[in-house]
Simulated scan of single mutants.
Amino acid sequence: MNLALFDLDHTLLPIDSDYEWGQFLCRIGAVDAQAFAARNQAFFAQYQAGTLDPVEYLEFSLGTLAGFPRAKLDEMHAQFMREVIAPAIRPSARALLQKHLGQGDLVAIVTATNHFVTAPIAAALGIEHLIAAMPEVAADGSITGKLVGTPTQGAGKVVHTKAWLEKLGKRLEDFETVHFYSDSHNDIPLMSVVTHPVATNPNAALTSHAAEKGWPTINIFND
């Protein structure tokens, strides 16, 4: 068995699910549109620039989730999946995933976006294993607004991936090949410890780094 890891936003999806979730909340009137959109845009710009404080951002996004009963959150997310995510899922992304699943590879999505937003997306893509920022969940299923553990961003993806594999009784070194597909220079720490890093729809910083390292580059959204 080999291992195939995938970033989510701008890698398997041509959009940023976290950012789009915020825009969706504004659009349906669930939050103060002007104030929320301004903060959401500022955080997104910081992420693109590689200057985002992941804890600060997650406290902001999870704090927003804490403002709603769980039933309402799930209702809103189902609408989000129908209106935003489902139309964004491309056949090319499904084909890339199926290539690895069909080979019998162990496949996981490793994303900095929180688990509440991404779990239904992973399920829609047919991926069982998801490594994502974990919100604290109360006994009644509501989200408290707190982050459990460390963020799954940058070097945190390496830490969380190794911890996930350890729970399965495995290590990165146990696999003959380990692919990691990502669009962002923020993921260079994990890309640097796998056997087959693949710059996928890469941003300018990752394009340059991949060229220096001789990493392959693909774009699955050219259709």
Rank of each mutant, 00 (worst) to 15 (best):
A139L: 07
A122V: 00
A132R: 04
H115K: 09
A133N: 13
A112K: 05
G126R: 04
A112H: 11
I121N: 01
T111M: 08
P120Q: 15
A132Q: 07
A139S: 14
A122W: 00
G141R: 11
T113D: 11
P135R: 12
A124T: 07
G126S: 11
H129G: 07
A112D: 09
G141Y: 10
V137A: 03
I127K: 05
A122Y: 02
A119E: 07
I121E: 00
F116A: 08
A112F: 06
A138D: 14
P135Q: 13
I121D: 00
A133P: 09
A132N: 06
A108E: 06
A123Q: 10
M134I: 15
E136D: 13
A133G: 06
H129E: 14
T118V: 14
G141T: 06
S142V: 13
G126F: 00
A119Y: 05
A124M: 08
S142K: 09
G126A: 10
A138K: 04
V110H: 03
A139C: 09
A124G: 15
D140F: 05
I143H: 09
I131R: 01
L125S: 10
P135W: 12
L130R: 01
V117G: 05
A112Y: 06
I121A: 02
A124D: 15
G126E: 13
V137N: 05
I143K: 10
T113G: 09
I127F: 01
A123I: 08
D140Q: 03
E136P: 10
I127W: 00
A139G: 12
A133L: 14
I121W: 01
T113W: 05
I127R: 03
I127E: 02
A139D: 15
T113K: 04
S142N: 12
A112G: 15
I143G: 07
E136I: 13
I127V: 12
P135T: 15
H129K: 15
V137C: 03
I131D: 00
M134N: 13
A138V: 11
L130S: 03
A132W: 06
A112W: 08
M134E: 14
F116I: 11
T111L: 04
V137Q: 07
F116M: 12
H129T: 13
A108D: 08
E128C: 02
A124S: 13
D140S: 05
T113C: 06
L130D: 00
I127G: 01
L125Y: 05
L125R: 02
T113Y: 06
P120D: 12
V110L: 01
L125N: 06
A124I: 08
A122Q: 06
G141C: 13
T118Q: 04
A138S: 14
I121P: 01
M134T: 15
V117M: 12
A133M: 14
L130Y: 01
T111W: 04
I121S: 02
P120L: 15
I127T: 04
T113R: 11
H129I: 06
A108K: 09
D140W: 08
A119W: 01
G141S: 11
A132S: 04
A124P: 12
A132M: 03
I131Q: 00
